[in-house]
Design a protein around this nucleic acid. Structure first.
Length: 289
DNA sequence: GTCCAGGCTTTCC
DNA sequence: GGAAAGCCTGGA
């Protein structure tokens, strides 16, 4: 991919950037480690780094980074090697997706760190986005390492496997997910579930492997595959996707499993992208209210 | 083996 | 007071 980029001290400016809107990217529920700033920019934490990104007209400004770091960390994080124009062209052949894409045209699927993504989506079960964000932030503050005056990195399995469930519940407010977090961390640390294997497994097998972890069911497994492992054919069915699929494609009270199979079949290798546009669309429409 | 109801912490709207 | 990016358990 070719990008027109200007390098300045402590920041990079990308000119005429297509298919990139921080609001769409961060507010589609795939990531929880970001803050909306007063000037409309977003501050994001990943890989032990803090980045601020702001959209100004058609340009994007990345603060607090260098070209070297951007190439090494953020290019892949923001999935900049992928052609979203082509993906959208293909998906827009479906009239409903065409509409959904108009709402979330600047959406991209991030490549996030596997362990953090696993714990984040274990926390997401029967939970709300503001609370999920809060718990993850509290975990970083309690167990992670200081990056700067404001932000902390997310801890690894070696730390969370030794955490006290009571402390996770009472300090980090994770509720009944406390034991699941600790047990899953143990299984990952001792390679009972070897995360490195997932890159080489297909969606079906990697899903089964992830579901051996406590707190990981079909929906959470698909989120992990999509948001951390580039498995673009994963199609997580949550309440919003259920609503939007039932509203436009299927009848009410369709089982989540059936909706998943329908999505797999209809959208194939692009199912994950379709799911994100639909999720964002459903929330923008306020479906189900 | 599959399917389903009920329970689960806590907070946000 | 109901619902929340669901999962786990026990019973049919």
């Amino acid at each position: 991919m070719d990008y027109k980029m200007i390098e300045e001290k402590n920041r990079l400016i990308f000119k005429d950037m297509e298919d990139f809107d921080p609001k769409h990217i961060f507010e589609c529920g795939q990531a929880f480690r970001w803050d909306l700033e007063e000037d409309g920019s977003y501050t994001v934490i990943a890989q032990g780094r803090v980045l601020n990104v702001k959209k100004e007209d058609k340009d994007l400004i990345f603060f607090n980074t260098t070209l070297e770091e951007f190439k090494r960390v953020w290019f892949d994080y923001f999935d900049l090697g992928r052609d979203y124009t082509a993906i959208k062209r293909e998906l827009a052949k479906d009239p409903i997706l065409k509409e959904a894409i108009e709402f979330g045209q600047g959406l991209r699927i991030l490549n996030q760190e596997p362990f953090e993504t696993i714990i984040s989506f274990i926390i997401s079960a029967n939970n709300q986005i503001p609370r999920i964000k809060k718990s993850i932030d509290l975990i970083a503050r309690s167990y992670g390492e200081k990056i700067d005056e404001v932000y902390y990195s997310f801890p690894g399995p070696e730390v969370l496997s030794k955490a006290d469930p009571k402390e996770l519940r009472e300090v980090c407010r994770v509720g009944f997910r406390d034991v699941r977090i600790v047990e899953a961390s143990k299984m990952i640390l001792n390679k009972e579930v070897d995360l490195d294997r997932i890159y080489d497994l297909n969606r079906e097998d990697s899903r089964k492997l992830l579901m051996e972890l406590p707190g990981v069911g079909p929906k959470v497994a698909d989120c992990i595959l999509l948001f951390a492992y580039k498995k673009a054919n994963a199609f997580p069915v949550d309440v919003w996707v259920k609503r939007v699929m039932e509203h436009f494609y299927l009848k009410k009270d369709t089982k989540a499993k059936e909706i998943g199979e329908y999505g797999d079949k209809k959208f194939g290798e692009l199912a994950g992208f379709a799911q994100q546009y639909l999720f964002y669309y459903a929330r923008e429409l306020g479906l189900g209210k």
